[in-house]
Design a protein around this nucleic acid. Structure first.
Lengths: 273, 273
DNA sequence: CGGAACGTTGACGTACATCAAACTAGGTGG
DNA sequence: CCACCTAGTTTGATGTACGTCAACGTTCCG
């Protein structure tokens, strides 16, 4: 890849914490061992915890995989991936309980670079053990397959979002999805602080920071959101959803008589952007 | 979803063929049981084969899943999925040995609609049996996890492709990928017949049929391809790759002195569009 | 043979990128 | 604590890739 922010200490330069039992983790309800850590024995899956400093990479594109993937314990990450021209582009954000490295399970080296957006911690999980010593745990297998499958659906959703949609639709969808994801983790759905820069958002959505800035301003003018810096408050989730669907405030003009709104429901919380 | 081509006989209206042993399938080398059907016991996985007529759906968005997914035995399919506005959009093409329904393994109902592009046949695989009676087959588990993981990587690649790229980059990447996929299946990499319409291509790439038509014409003028109707021949794969990377014939003008081409390699055959 | 999809070609408009410049905030060193 | 500096953010002016609309040609199938 071209010029990734290979800033801090290379892979392995994280603070390594002792082994850990998922049964005692506060995120156990919404993480991999969702169906009950004790019963499934997921607790034994987690090898180590790694602490990753802000802007430091968890792993790099090209690094060896070693049969591991990761669950975000707290903090947040961004994932870079080479685009058609070989230049690195943002491929997604990962919040607490999201998984990292699922796309590399069959491979020998990572195909993307993961960088912490803030001081964060991840749990190391052995994918080898999933078809190794844990292969007889049917509940765990089912759970794991579900996690992989959901990841596929997530990526499909993102690919969907990035196609024919206008810029305002993308941004509105992004904000709503963030809101859902925070809500699913027990935080406020209507008020949060963006962990990522406008540049990162623009990169993810296939836009320029200038466009993002202008669109946020327009949303603010329309009364859909309120924001100062990276603190954001969603005032009118329904209005944002209308933007996503394609109605909404297409023109900066006020509420014109819109054609009959379409009935179909918007996409479900298919997570991780 | 809105108005999918619910044309022919509803789900279940396919011709059902008898059970089948993968060991005797000619595609066994490149399908799920790639590591040797006998050894892994994949042969027992496949329940039935279904024959699906051209334009007929294999399953619909909303249909019950029943713990099954599918491997394309011959023919080809297209996958529709609801976009942000609830309207159906093309999400991908599947050729022989590709998998269908992997994204629904954890779910109770399908989130996309699959339609045959031509008379085709699929093999039914039980995902339940993967964490059921086959859970002790470590080689098979590993293989299955690899398939799921690769699917994630594929979707990530597609999402990547559809973002900041220009229309010509997308189309060139699409053609090259088709070429790779045909080659991987033992067909000619440089000459094939498109199973899908321009409309379908446009829909997949987030373009209009008009744009696709104009771009194909431009590629033809540049000597990159040769085409009549749906028959296409790739003359200059390197030239197409240059287009993908961002150099190539940006202007319809002939070979102008281009700035030094970038060194990085293009994306690997990460398959299924 | 007729009709309906599909495909091509042209003229035109617009959403968003690009370029450029000013403003703001966070971090660092004096 | 303030000066400074860089990275991030905002705002404006301008250009262009690609969508839209419209008309015509072509293929395919009943």
């Amino acid at each position: 890849m071209d010029s990734l922010p290979r800033t801090q200490a290379s892979p392995g330069g994280h603070k390594i914490l002792s082994a850990f039992d998922c049964a005692r983790c506060q995120a156990r309800g919404s993480c991999l061992p969702a169906c009950g850590a004790g019963a499934t024995g997921v607790g034994q899956l987690v090898g180590r915890r790694l602490r990753v400093a802000r802007d430091a990479p968890l792993y790099h594109c090209g690094d060896a995989v070693n049969g591991l993937f990761y669950a975000v314990r707290y903090g947040s990450f961004k994932t870079y991936r080479a685009d058609a021209g070989g230049r690195p582009r943002l491929a997604g954000f990962q919040l607490g309980t999201d998984m990292l490295g699922l796309d590399a399970i069959g491979l020998h080296q990572h195909s993307c670079t993961v960088v912490a957006l803030e001081d964060s911690e991840v749990c190391e999980v052995s994918s080898d053990s999933m078809h190794g010593k844990h292969q007889h745990n049917a509940a765990l297998q089912r759970l794991f397959h579900g996690v992989l499958s959901k990841e596929i659906a997530r990526e499909q959703y993102l690919a969907m979002l990035l196609r024919n949609t206008r810029a305002d639709q993308r941004l509105a969808a992004f904000l709503l999805q963030l809101s859902w994801r925070y809500a699913a983790r027990g935080y406020s759905a209507s008020q949060f602080r963006l962990a990522m820069s406008r540049i990162d958002i623009a990169d993810l959505l296939g836009l320029t920071p200038e466009s993002v800035s202008r669109l946020l301003y327009r949303f603010k003018q329309s009364g859909l959101i309120e924001l100062s810096g990276r603190d954001i408050r969603l005032h009118d989730a329904a209005g944002l959803k209308a933007v996503v669907v394609g109605e909404g405030d297409a023109a900066p003009a006020p509420t014109s008589t819109a054609p009959p709104p379409r009935g179909t429901e918007t996409t479900p919380d298919t997570g991780q952007q």
